[in-house]
Computed example of a mutant assay.
Amino acid sequence: MDQLIQELNQANHITVLTGAGVSTASGIPDFRSSNGIWTEDESREYFMSNQYFHLDPNDFWKKYKDIFQLKLLRNYKPNEVHSFIHSLEEKGKKVAVITQNVDGLHQKAGSSNVIEYHGSLTTSTCPGCGASYDMDYINNSVVPRCERETCGTILKPDIVLFGDAITEHDRAEAIIDQTDLVLVLGTSLLVMPFNFLPEYAYSRKIPTALINREETPKDRLFHYVIHDDLISTLQQIEGQLT
């Protein structure tokens, strides 16, 4: 812990990789933990796939709204972890957040440089004309369609569905190239290719730190590993940052 605090104090550029464990304190389910939503019913991965969206977009939207509880999304607020990350910026550090989360809470907490690796629940886009629609519009329609008179295409959510291409990986690696420290918070590091990012940092000899309640298959890649509650650990750290 003392060595990690020293690294944080010395680092000017910090890249923070975040997963579902960062948002659970805000009430959002952890989809991939040992008790996560995806372990309850493997068919959900099929229903949340690009293939199923194109096969039956009407039923896709019904299941999508149910699984992700879109009506409740605006009730969720940033928690102490989001605030800690933003506080690093307030100390004058250059901070980039690369998140697996799709809830938009990092932005709500004030983080200014957020790469949403798996997209966002807060918007949807028309595959026909490219028009973008916000959460209010999405929630006001059972099956949201483009409202442009000449279009009317069923909208596609702006999250990365199973089978979609990851478009932010190269950008994430470019950010890591410029960093002094990679801090990984609240992720089991089971999902590819996101879990290649700590490997990339390790290969570039960049200091890496992991704080997660459970062990991960990638623990060996980190210079600092803390298996403990995320909020209480960060509160200890924050009190000793300069």
Rank of each mutant, 00 (worst) to 15 (best):
F47D: 04
S49V: 14
Q51A: 15
Q51E: 15
Y52N: 09
Y52E: 07
D56R: 07
D59K: 15
D59P: 00
F60I: 02
F60A: 01
K62P: 05
K65W: 03
D66H: 11
D66A: 14
I67R: 03
F68Y: 14
L70I: 01
L70F: 00
K71H: 12
K71D: 12
L72H: 12
L73F: 09
L73S: 06
R74E: 15
K77C: 12
F84C: 09
E89V: 07
E90G: 05
G92L: 14
K93A: 13
K94R: 15
V97W: 03
T99I: 02
Q100G: 00
D103P: 01
D103H: 00
D103A: 00
G104Q: 04
L105W: 00
H106G: 00
G110V: 05
S111M: 05
S111Q: 08
S112I: 11
S112L: 07
N113M: 04
V114A: 00
V114K: 00
I115K: 11
E116S: 01
G119A: 06
S120N: 03
S120M: 06
L121I: 06
L121A: 07
L121M: 04
L121C: 04
T122L: 12
T122D: 06
T122P: 01
G128N: 13
G130C: 10
S132V: 10
D134I: 03
D136Q: 15
D136M: 09
Y137E: 06
I138P: 04
R145F: 12
R145Y: 11
C146S: 05
C146D: 08
E147L: 04
R148W: 09
R148E: 14
C151D: 04
C151K: 07
C151V: 02
C151E: 03
G152M: 07
T153H: 02
L155N: 06
K156P: 10
D158L: 02
I159N: 01
V160K: 05
F162P: 10
D164V: 00
D164C: 10
D164G: 12
I166D: 05
T167E: 13
E168T: 08
E168N: 13
D170A: 12
R171T: 11
E173V: 13
E173L: 13
A174H: 14
I175R: 06
